[in-house]
Nucleic acid binder design. Structure first.
Length: 256
DNA sequence: ATGCCTCAGCTCCTGAGA
C-alpha cells in the first residue's frame, strides 16, 4: 500500500489538483498540510466521492492539516498531547493497523526570531510525545512538511543556505533526535537521483532551474522498515497551472 | 535587492511562507 504527504498551500485553490492527483495515484492514505481553511469549509464530500474518508484539523488563513484514507481512520488526535499550541499543525490516526501522523512543522522564519524559538519548542514537544507513541505503536509513520533539511544533499545551494532557516544545526539536531527515537528517512533507504527536492520557490523560476530543498519527509519506524519497498517524490503536480510550491512524497509498504 | 511569487483577508496593501 502507498502512503503520501503533500503541502497544498491552500486547499481552496488546490482541491481540483488534489482530486486529479488522487485519481492518477490512488494511494491508501494522503496527509495534507497548509489547508488555510476552517473545518466547516473542508470538502469532505468531494473526497468521499473520490473514495476517501477524511479527517481535518483546520485553521483560518494559516496552517491546517488533514488525513484522507480509503479505510476508516480511528483514534484521531489533533495536535501534540502535552504541548499547548494555538496552531493546527498535527493530525494522527490508526489506519490499517498503522499509527499515522501528519504534520506541518513550523517554518521558523529566521534563526534567533520568536518564531524560531517556537519551532524549537514545538520540535521538543513533538519528540517528547513521539517517544511514547512509538512505544505504544511500534508500527508508525510520521510524515509531512518538516521545514528542515537533513544535510547538503537536500539543498540546491548548501553554501548560500548555510545556517539559514531550514538548514541550521539547531533544526537538524531536532530532526536527528527524531531519527534517534528509532525512525528512518524512507527516501534515503533507496538510491535517489541527485538534487531531489520537494519544494521550490515560486520566485525566479525556482522549479525550472531546480533550485529547491527537500523539506517534506516520511519517517518510518523500525518495525515498518523491512516493509518499505519504494519511496519517491512526485514532481508532476509542480508542473500544473497554479501549483503548490511543494509536491507530494510517496512511500510504498509491501506485506502488511 | 527589506525584491523576486503566491495566498488569505477587516483585500487595491500587508504578513507569512521557505
Amino acid at each position: 500500500m502507498k502512503l503520501a504527504t503533500w503541502n497544498v498551500n491552500s486547499l481552496t485553490v488546490r482541491l481540483p489538483q488534489v482530486l486529479d492527483w488522487l485519481a492518477a495515484n490512488p494511494v491508501e492514505l494522503l496527509v495534507l498540510q497548509e489547508l488555510k481553511m476552517t473545518d466547516e469549509k473542508f470538502p469532505h464530500e468531494a473526497f468521499r466521492h473520490a473514495g476517501y474518508q477524511s479527517e481535518c484539523f483546520g485553521q483560518k488563513t494559516y496552517n491546517g492539516v488533514a488525513l484522507l484514507s480509503r479505510t476508516q481512520a480511528s483514534q484521531i488526535i489533533r495536535n501534540i498531547p502535552g504541548f499547548t499550541d494555538e496552531m493546527a499543525r498535527v493530525i494522527s490516526a490508526d489506519v490499517n493497523g498503522i499509527r499515522v501522523i501528519g504534520g506541518y512543522f513550523p517554518n521558523g522564519q529566521e534563526p534567533g526570531s520568536d518564531k524560531f524559538e517556537y519551532k524549537m519548542a514545538w520540535l521538543k514537544g513533538l519528540r517528547d510525545w513521539l517517544r511514547n507513541e512509538l512505544i505504544s505503536n511500534p508500527k508508525l509513520v510520521i510524515m509531512g512538511d518538516y521545514n528542515i533539511t537533513f544535510d547538503d544533499a537536500d539543498v540546491w545551494d548548501p553554501v548560500g543556505m548555510r545556517d539559514q532557516i531550514h538548514c541550521t544545526n539547531e533544526e537538524r539536531y531536532h530532526l536527528n533526535a527524531m531519527i534517534g527515537l528509532g525512525l528512518y528517512d524512507a527516501f534515503r533507504l533507496f538510491d535517489q537521483a541527485p538534487k531531489s527536492y520537494s519544494w521550490w520557490d515560486y520566485r525566479d523560476f525556482g522549479f525550472k532551474r531546480n533550485r529547491g530543498m527537500r523539506i517534506d519527509h516520511i519517517l518510518i519506524s523500525h518495525a515498518l522498515k523491512p516493509l518499505v519497498t519504494r519511496c519517491w517524490i512526485d514532481k508532476t503536480p509542480r508542473k500544473n497551472e497554479r501549483p503548490s510550491d511543494h509536491t507530494p512524497v510517496v512511500v510504498e509498504l509491501t506485506g502488511l
